[in-house]
Design a protein around this nucleic acid. Structure first.
Lengths: 370, 370
DNA sequence: CCCTTATTCTAAACCGGTTTGATGAGCTCG
DNA sequence: CGAGCTCATCAAACCGGTTTAGAATAAGGG
């Protein structure tokens, strides 16, 4: 056949002026497996075998099919494939977040980016939903499951007694928890360890000489909030340090500032504070500075997340960095493997990094130290 | 044929102990339109008519179908539907971002959340891709188009001479530009106006008495970077203020600090600086403070974005807030409408807000003012 | 009462792939 | 030379919906 132009269906016609309708919106003109089969002079089945790398096709036929594919620029249609396979080749992520809090959160974009880098080479897509509350969250999972849009979902930001592991099991969705495994649930997890970062922070502060180390917690009800608080409390106990009441906050700057004042108003205020995230830590620095305290001379501050701003402020923030991008990547591969029934690769997450900048220093001598 | 049981596939079998495999992973057991039709004693076509609210079904039949749907908990399968309709009921968003910059960016999460709130009630899903560079970006669009995974895509962060409007047109994808319309392209746009926020900022500074107002630009090559710079330059000219050379930066904190030093090193340094985003502005405050300048007494600073941190730092940042959530919402509806061939509703975006906090004040008397 | 027109409903084709069962060609071997 | 195999190939059924063409029934008109 002339190698020139015999592209897809019709279309080619006379490139004359003619009133012939142009190739319908570009769409619809896409070649199908049938076109490829016809051009390669084989059946659709053979083409299918070729694209799926299955045995039973002669080298000659395989070559012809490959050439035809190339010629037509054909790639199998994802939807049709999904229908036959009963697999959508798509994974779902439902994020539940206050819209205001969303843009603070360094986790979300990084994690999504990581998932993407893991999914793209596998030919998977990611469908995303952002929901405001628990009700819509449940509906989102139900819809994803019913519609058959996804093969599996990621579960992030687990709450204590989170209903989602049970929900997805009931819905028959494959799932992967990003965080510590849920006791009593068969949903697999990639074990994120929030504790070790906090322990590193406490140990760092202790070695600087701090004896009273406070903690500003994240929003109540999340397992990572608990994990961080427990790690802090445990580290204090292990080191035989003074107990300081933890103070609740909710990851917002305002709550961080309030919590900071609360700690500094204690009879015996801490000389160092570990915050559950950077936003609260920065707000804490501002709050402390506003009271006439100097950071780090009078008060040491440790954050969590290492947001880009952390080293743009004064003083640059000592903080804990987690490689969320890699989490996403690993999670993507693990969940894809699971939906395909393959055992996931050995899962190892990179360890947290503890970034020492200038918001921590030895505690003041005597002075407020009581 | 016996009307009795011809449900889906086997399964039903003996519920005896037997080694019969349990209903495969919960999945696969989902009812189909055929099951509903059988239960309601109508044809598949009738069921289809009912779910799609089409005329030509008697009230009685309609009721029976509804009941059967309810009974079985059936909802049409999205994939099958997409295949028939040649519509995926899915929209795509490809974000090109340096992973490091991703978590800074208040735009991305908010915009995604906004899209979602617009899409969910329409039964659309969003597939997301995050890519590192221009090459993978193009591939992402090509794959989305070829696979037939999406009906349309959002185009954000337009660059000057951006190849994407032409690309998507060529790929036959419906698209919507989030930003100013591209001259010479037929791709519709929702007109985001970066300029007015900057003009507000300049006018605010001018009314405080500033005569020398500098600008730290965003990354080169983006239309919004240009728009902001042009607006700044135009506002200066309109007010007959002194020209100050704009200084290039790239939205990162480090670049913001560097740019700030560059401006302050001028023979006649500005008394106020307008930054293209908050991150650079905050880094700028830190840089200026490090040189012994006080903000706002010696230098006024205006940011752009109103990130949550903006009012947690000292001094709280005067900045421009755009309602990105609403942009996403509006964009979603507009693009969905377009893919369905409907004319989109009248598009009106909320105006930007100018948030005056404490990083701006009258310029110092005499002193550095020369 | 027959003919026309509307209405309700269904069988069958279709979307674009995958998978299965059957057919036929080419080999080996007794 | 024919039985027995293997291998390549293809037609047809299937996934779960939508859509069309036409049959069956009901209603209206002369």
């Amino acid at each position: 056949m002339a190698q020139g132009r015999d592209q897809a269906s019709g279309a080619a016609g006379g490139s004359r002026a003619e009133s012939a309708p142009p190739p319908r919106r570009g769409r619809g003109s896409r070649p199908t497996i049938g076109d490829v089969a016809a051009l390669a002079k084989v059946s659709k089945a053979t083409v299918s075998f070729v694209v799926n790398d299955r045995a039973g096709v002669s080298p000659a036929a395989r070559r012809r099919v490959r050439a035809a594919m190339e010629d037509l620029g054909w790639q199998p249609n994802a939807g049709a494939r999904a229908l036959s396979n009963k697999r959508a080749q798509t994974l779902g992520l439902v994020m539940r977040r206050q819209p205001e809090l969303l843009s603070t959160d360094p986790f979300f974009p990084q994690f999504v980016a990581g998932i993407e880098t893991g999914l793209a080479p596998l030919g998977y897509a990611l469908v995303l939903q952002v929901v405001p509350d628990e009700d819509t969250e449940r509906q989102a999972y139900e819809r994803l499951a019913r519609d058959g849009r996804v093969d599996g979902v990621f579960l992030t930001d687990l709450r204590v007694d989170d209903p989602r592991p049970a929900l997805v099991t009931e819905l028959g969705l494959d799932a992967l928890i990003v965080g510590p495994p849920q006791p009593g649930s068969r949903v697999p997890a990639i074990g994120v360890d929030d504790g070790s970062g906090i322990r590193r922070a406490v140990s760092h502060l202790r070695s600087l000489g701090h004896r009273r180390i406070g903690h500003v917690c994240g929003a109540e009800g999340y397992v990572h909030t608990e994990a961080r608080r427990d790690a802090w409390r445990g580290a204090l106990a292990d080191a035989g340090l003074a107990e300081v009441p933890p103070v609740e906050a909710d990851f917002t700057g305002a709550s961080g500032a309030r919590a900071t004042h609360q700690l500094l108003d204690l009879d015996r205020p801490p000389t160092a504070i570990v915050y559950a995230n950077d936003l609260m830590a920065i707000a804490g620095i501002t709050a402390a500075t506003g009271r006439g305290l100097r950071v780090p001379e009078d008060l040491s501050v440790v954050g969590f997340d290492d947001i880009p701003l952390a080293d743009c402020i004064a003083p640059p923030l000592t903080t804990v960095r987690q490689d969320v991008l890699t989490w996403g990547n690993v999670a993507a591969q693990a969940l894809a493997a699971r939906t395909e029934g393959r055992a996931p690769e050995q899962i190892t997450l990179p360890p947290v990094e503890f970034i020492i900048r200038s918001s921590t220093a030895p505690p003041p001598r005597g002075g407020r130290q009581e």
